[in-house]
Design a protein around this nucleic acid. Structure first.
Lengths: 351, 351
DNA sequence: TTGAAAGCGCTAACAT
DNA sequence: ATGTTAGCGCTTTCAA
């Protein structure tokens, strides 16, 4: 194991520029009290020698680590990767978060941690001790795990909680699930649908509740009785199958369905096909998430886009401190991406 | 900026266990010359205090950084993420690489670098200086960029080159493109196809050549003239469209097509649909890569699976040094995933 | 088998 | 405005 040393250190630069270490350090960190001439001379040496500060050394002397930890649920993430169903949550996090990190000289490290685990604290504690990140991004369901938020708060590590409105320490960011659900429901309403079914996500995700609430409130606003229009799934394809059957195999079935995620929508699609219902002619369908797969179904699905990249990007900015966090949760609006799975109901006003 | 210190350091452990720093260090690193009793005592203190060594400090004193850098092409990766077409290269790298890293206490950091850039060396040099990774994983097209391999070799940083057979410094790993192409072609041959078209990838990817070679050699073996059965694309959907048209709009079109990646296969599918050719009845289709999207097409595509996760995992093992690298490139075999896009030709023996 | 001392590259605190 | 000193947490000499 060759003992590898830094090729060119602050010392080399100092020697080359004929100044003290401290002056070089000041230049690197944009510190005050350096004459422009001096600054330039040092900068020139830095360029010449191709000097880049060692993060490890910077960290050692109490400065920043330039590391942001993105915490994802271990079990779920690995399962998604293995299934290869096209979910791109992690990619979008990287797209938004990692690129924003890079802008400021930070790196993003993905860390997988089990929420349903006695040793969350141990696992997370170990990651923090080893890496000493300058900030942590929590994704659901970690965002609402008190064990995690407590630990982070105690250690005074800045953190962002994505996908939650719950108050508490840390910066809360939400993708406006409720508003998006309203938009989707409105769209269906405007097309003339009255019986709009809803497939909810599992209760242990708070966003499931918010999506449901958005749908429900629009329905109530429109004066529509919501009875028999509600089903629950677990975000999996099979649960979408079951939920859609329940909704569609009744005497007066919905003419449109809003599914709380893409996989359940795929399940609903399958049921429609089995029942000989053509989409969008006999059944309109809108899904949540807008993962890649909805572009390739027949027909392509109208879907609520979750602005994951944008949200991750904002989270990083907030953590790094180049943006100010308010007291209220930061709401990043999603959008409804129109494709070909929605149309007016076949028999307007049917019931 | 609160000057954050390590919560529990090696000193605390030493004090708690009543031994010297050095002894604790030996225990942490499984060093020699520690009596079992001593080791246990120290271990107990470590557990009790929840001590985890600081990577920064370890790195500072010349030890490992426990960081593996995974280098991906910036432009291509970002474009893929933005397109959201379901490519999951990065995810599979993480699945294989990151999990393997975790097994040994390492972390994997994804780094995006432009290959077609005068300052590749600068960019990479900066990342290395800042992070001081213990190993680097190169993905195409970096794997064959001499600027990069040279830099890494000079600095004596262990690195793996994925997707190349080229000799040179570093560990070469390939996913057996040629063998996979042979398998796919054989499968088509066994089904009774003779006129098997091939859509090649762009020439600047060496794997394009290997895939082509596999197809060509099987065809020659079977005594089939390959004329008019070959087209080239650039891995994009549109190029698949063009290539398929060229292949299919001739007097004696192929009864089967092997496309060098999924997106081009999608293009071919579209052309078939336009021409009223049903898959697999009138045209058999096999694609390379097996990204998520091929599960959702109609019909689902038979595809060559690229074992990215497995390859990344092996690369990490080799880099960390828990496996020995041979001189020859390590070949990780892909597999043909059977779905519904292949069948015997409509009129057996047609030409 | 154990411990003490030196130093890794850098920055904060304190001179000058 | 610049330089000097001390120390971060750890590992590697070297000494006992």
């Amino acid at each position: 194991m060759a003992r590898r040393r830094q090729a060119v250190t602050i010392k080399h630069v100092a020697a080359d520029a004929g100044v003290s270490l401290q002056t070089v350090s000041r230049v690197i960190n944009d510190g005050p009290n350096v004459r422009p001439a001096m600054r330039e001379r040092v900068q020139a040496s830095i360029e010449k020698l191709g000097y880049v500060p060692s993060i490890a050394a910077q960290r050692m002397s109490g400065a920043k680590s330039y590391l942001i930890l993105a915490l994802n649920d271990r079990e779920r993430t690995i399962a998604d990767w293995r299934k290869r169903e096209g979910g791109d949550w992690v990619d979008q996090m990287l797209l938004g978060g990692m690129l924003k990190c890079a802008e400021y000289g930070y790196r993003m490290i993905i860390e997988l941690v089990d929420t349903h685990n006695d040793h969350v604290e141990r696992e997370l504690g170990a990651a923090i001790a080893a890496l000493q990140p300058d900030g942590v991004i929590l994704t659901p369901p970690h965002s609402e795990n008190p064990l995690i938020t407590k630990l982070l708060a105690e250690r005074h590590i800045p953190f962002a909680r994505i996908g939650t409105r719950a108050s508490g320490p840390g910066i809360a960011l939400t993708m406006d699930d409720q508003g998006s659900a309203r938009k989707a429901t409105q769209h269906l309403l405007e097309l003339g649908h009255r019986r709009i079914g809803f497939i909810a996500g599992p209760a242990d995700y708070s966003l499931s509740g918010r999506r449901e609430k958005g749908w429900r409130s629009e329905m109530v606003n429109a004066g529509i009785d919501v009875e028999d229009l509600y089903a629950v799934g677990d975000f999996g394809f099979d649960s979408g199958l079951r939920a859609a059957r329940k909704l569609l195999q009744q005497s007066s079935p919905p003419t449109a369905i809003l599914a709380s995620n893409d996989q359940m929508a795929l399940g609903a699609m399958q049921v429609a096909r089995e029942m000989g219902l053509s989409i969008p002619h006999n059944l309109s369908l809108i899904s949540f998430d807008n993962t890649p797969v909805v572009r390739f179904t027949k027909p392509p699905l109208t879907a609520v886009d979750q602005p994951i990249a944008e949200t991750a990007s904002r989270a990083v900015e907030l953590l790094i401190g180049n943006a100010k966090a308010g007291d209220e949760p930061l709401v990043i609006e999603g959008s409804l991406v129109m494709r070909e799975s929605t149309a007016p109901p076949a028999r307007p006003g049917n019931e």
